[in-house]
Simulated assay, not measured.
Amino acid sequence: MRVVVGVSGTPAGAAALHRAAAEARQRGADLWTVLAWQVPGRDRTQRDTWREAAVARLREILDEAFGPAGPGVTLAGLTAVGAPGAVLVDVARAPDDVLVVGAGQRGPLRRLLRPSVARYCVARAACPVLVVPPSPLLAELGAVHRRNVWGLPLDARGLGGVAS
């Protein structure tokens, strides 16, 4: 049995990765981490360079997520060329696999420009799919970031542990 998780290096991807590790520990399954990548533009001559960069990025993501202790289960890393949804569905093709994906934040513009990997996987996977919602803290972080960009003051009254 395997728990297959798509990794991206985003906060939503980190939440999915940690949830997948917990799921693998609970089920006694192997954890397969998958980083899908695509060759930028039409230049295929640098394919090996891009592959090496993808492998290095996957190692970096796993080191950041789990540190030297690891996830506590057998871990496999895979980088594959292709669209993330298609790659994940292809890897998690056994009926006893579990596919874990992050939902991410999906504003109207992002939905228009980039199709949802989670929706793709739910519609096409041959195994159960666990979609991990984004943390509510991400929305708050985005709001703080926007206020900083626009130079607007922050209201610290709602923050816990901050003296007035």
Rank of each mutant, 00 (worst) to 15 (best):
A94W: 00
I61V: 12
D90V: 04
T49G: 11
V87K: 07
A24W: 05
T74V: 14
V131E: 02
A12D: 06
D48F: 11
V34I: 03
R51Q: 11
A94K: 12
G13Y: 02
G158P: 07
G77T: 03
L159M: 13
L62V: 10
G160L: 15
L31E: 07
P115M: 04
G9W: 03
V100R: 01
W50Y: 14
V91T: 03
R25E: 03
S8P: 10
D90N: 10
W37P: 10
V73E: 01
G161Y: 15
P95N: 06
G28E: 00
A21I: 01
L112M: 08
S164R: 15
V73M: 02
S164G: 14
W37S: 09
A80S: 14
A20H: 02
A14R: 13
R119A: 12
A16T: 04
A22G: 07
G67I: 09
L75T: 00
V3L: 06
P68T: 12
E52H: 13
A92Y: 05
T49F: 15
R157I: 00
D96K: 09
R110N: 10
R114G: 07
L138F: 02
L141E: 05
S135A: 12
G9A: 14
A123N: 12
R51K: 13
Y120K: 03
A29F: 03
F66M: 02
A69I: 08
L35W: 05
L130G: 00
D90Y: 02
A86T: 09
D63C: 05
R25S: 10
T10C: 12
P153H: 14
V73C: 06
P71Y: 07
A36N: 03
T33Q: 10
G85N: 00
A126N: 11
E60F: 11
A14Q: 13
A54P: 15
W37E: 04
G77K: 01
W150A: 13
E23L: 04
P153I: 11
Q38K: 13
R25K: 02
S8F: 07
L35Q: 04
H18Q: 09
R114P: 09
A163T: 15
P128I: 06
G67N: 09
T79E: 07
V39A: 15
A76Y: 06
D155V: 15
G82H: 09
F66G: 11
D43H: 15
E64F: 05
G85M: 07
T74L: 05
R93N: 07
A80H: 08
Q105S: 13
